[in-house]
Design a protein around this nucleic acid. Structure first.
Length: 568
RNA sequence: CGGGAUGUGGCGCAGUUUGGUCAGCGCGCUUGCCUUGGGAGCAAGAGGCCGGGAGUUCAAAUCUCCCCAUCCCGACCA
């Protein structure tokens, strides 16, 4: 390809609206342009990268026996009503009507469509296992699209669905996908890690997310610093070893003390001279099932995902001040479990054996001391609802947990029978018994993977594409296009590399060399070949984008040099 | 949806407080000359109903009201 004929639209300055590096660079280097908030046109350079990612994904899905199909973007509401998600999905679902007033949506995901398909087409255990996948646009009316391709309202996703006759089959399908995902992201040149994840509203019980570590990531990941342990989880899911409470005291009688204006854990702790881990934090939430109180130790925070899982609710939000006053009879900051009637008490396991703790007294400017769980209040649920933080102890090996940021580029779920039951997707087993199909689903954010690759591979000058994703492997820069010797040699190099199968861009634009060098660095071709002063001797410079390493070679060594750079 | 901010040529911005002297700058773009190893130089140009609408005023980029869009923080997130 010749640059003079190709759509190279680099920007000298960073667009003001781009916040994260991947967004800035993808726009500046001419890979994407915004059409609307969270909606992008992929320019030719960007499309080349996406096609590379898609090709890798496709190969790895096929390797595991996946069969590609293509499902509609526009989906009828009735299927979503059947699964129950028309009502549950909420405003994030793009909804529309046809001219007859019938309801449709733009698919944010394809469980409904695929389950309906399989319900109709698969009747016998002999037709399974089945791995079906799809690569296409998805639509989610995100509350706040942000960070360019990282969180868009329209994006490209690969989703595969597995259909098995039993749990053992599902486990095999799940492991196949786990392996496929690891291969995909390795081949994309990404540093990533599978972590345990909450399965969220999609349902199911086992799930892993594939996280690309990057500061711009929206997810927090904790992992054990002991390499032999290998524990890693999304913070939503993460567990830690519970801290022991000091057991050196006898329970004392409950006592109310005056704590004027002391609302926060820090204030109460220092006012009463009691360590935060002796305090019991009581937080009120509003759910569709009513008000609940969540209790953790004062040195902990509540993990709302865990809390929601315990409660089995769809909606969970902090109660507002008016509700708190009404329920506790006190202003915010003085809530406690003692005498809190008519409210479900969800108590973290660390709280239960606390001796002589401190809680709010449900009265303005008052707290209780010497609170003893079980004696002074009775939990409705006791479980782990605390948010794990860095520095805590690993629940498995006793190592130390470390926290970092990650971009979720893929997630795999064991769905079980949630959708097959709701939609009546059953089969006859070998005994002629009708059973629900066991499902799994497995997604990869294609466009997000492109952004993640940039987040992980860039420097001050621009993008540094991994060879497997680069829009072109090599760019050839003739220093002076008017110099006949240089132009001819550049042309010769171009033909040679094209013939050898390298994707090559010849920068034959009538620009000064500085412009071409800067564009080359910005766009991020892994290898640059400069044809300049030494052209009369038949020599060119081969430069490695990532390291800056430069070698001067003749045509006879060119291909091997380019190859060695591409493999680095 | 709540909080904050922004909207002026393709990009980045000034001008808005104190209405007129305001359509400006840098980059980019076009043409010519010149230059060619890291975003050159000189010269001449093109390009904007100042986000939209309604008002106030002799007069609005500037003041008022409404709307729209975009970005950031939060809630949200198969």
């Amino acid at each position: 390809m010749r640059a003079s004929e190709y759509m190279i639209v680099t920007l000298r300055e960073t667009p003001a609206e781009a916040e994260v590096v991947s967004h800035q660079l993808l726009v500046r280097a001419g890979f994407i342009r915004k059409a609307a908030a969270g909606i992008y046109t992929i320019l030719p350079l960007g499309q080349r990268v996406l096609k590379k990612i898609i090709a890798i994904v496709r190969e790895e899905m096929d390797r595991q026996g996946g069969q590609e199909l293509l499902m509609p973007i526009m989906q009828p509401a009735e299927l979503w009503m059947k699964s129950g998600r028309w009502d549950v999905y909420g405003p994030e679902l793009f909804r529309l009507k046809d001219r007859h007033g019938r309801d449709f949506c733009l698919g944010p995901t394809h469980e409904e469509i695929i389950t309906e398909l399989v319900r109709n087409e698969v009747r016998s255990y002999k037709q399974m296992p089945l791995l079906l996948y799809h690569i296409g646009n998805k639509y989610r009316d995100e509350i706040r699209p942000r960070f360019g391709l990282m969180r868009g309202r329209e994006f490209i996703m690969k989703d595969l669905y597995s259909f098995d006759i039993d749990e053992a089959g599902l486990e095999i399908s799940y492991q196949k996908m786990h392996e496929a995902y690891s291969r995909v992201f390795s081949r994309c040149g990404l540093e990533f890690r599978p972590v345990e994840a909450d399965s969220g509203p999609i349902g199911g019980n086992v799930s892993h997310e594939f996280m690309v570590f990057a500061d711009a990531g929206e997810a927090t990941v904790v992992y054990c610093d002991n390499p032999e342990c290998g524990y890693a989880a999304n913070v939503e899911k993460a567990i830690s070893k519970r801290k022991d409470n000091p057991a050196d005291e006898q329970p004392q009688p409950l006592e109310e003390v005056s704590t004027p204006g002391m609302r926060t854990i820090e204030e109460v702790s220092s006012f009463l001279g009691v360590a935060p881990e002796r305090l019991i934090k009581t937080v009120l939430y509003r759910t569709e099932k009513g008000i609940v109180a969540a209790l953790v130790r004062g040195d902990r925070d509540i993990n709302e995902v865990k809390l929601q899982n315990v409660l089995g609710t769809v909606h969970l939000e902090l109660a507002d001040e008016a509700t708190i006053e009404q329920v506790t009879g006190a202003p915010v900051g003085f809530a406690g479990p003692v005498g809190l009637d008519g409210v479900d008490l969800v108590v973290d396991e660390e709280v239960t054996d606390l001796v002589n703790g401190v809680t709010g007294a449900n009265r303005k400017d008052a707290h209780y001391i010497n609170v003893n769980p079980g004696r002074d209040f009775v939990p409705d649920h006791v479980t782990d609802i605390r948010l794990v933080g860095a520095g805590e102890t690993c629940a498995y090996c006793g190592g130390t947990l470390v926290a970092t940021r990650g971009i979720e580029v893929g997630q795999i779920f064991k769905l079980g029978t949630k959708y097959s039951k709701a939609m009546g997707a059953t089969f006859l087993d070998a005994n002629g018994e009708e059973k629900p199909i066991i499902m799994g689903c497995y997604g990869i954010g294609i466009t997000r993977t492109m952004a993640a690759a940039v987040e992980q591979n860039h420097d001050d000058y621009g993008i540094i594409w991994p060879a497997s994703l680069a829009p072109f492997h090599v760019v050839i820069v003739p220093v002076n296009i008017k110099d006949k010797t240089q132009a001819a040699l550049a042309e010769q190099v171009y033909r040679l590399l094209e013939n050898k199968g390298f994707e090559t861009l010849l920068d034959d634009r009538r620009e000064r060399p500085g412009v071409k060098f800067n564009d080359a660095d910005l766009i991020g071709y892994p290898v640059r070949i400069t044809v300049g002063k030494k052209a009369p001797e038949g020599l060119v410079e081969v430069r490695h984008r990532r390291t800056g390493e430069t070698i001067t070679v003749g045509l006879d060594e060119l291909v091997s040099t380019v190859n060695s750079f591409l493999e680095k």
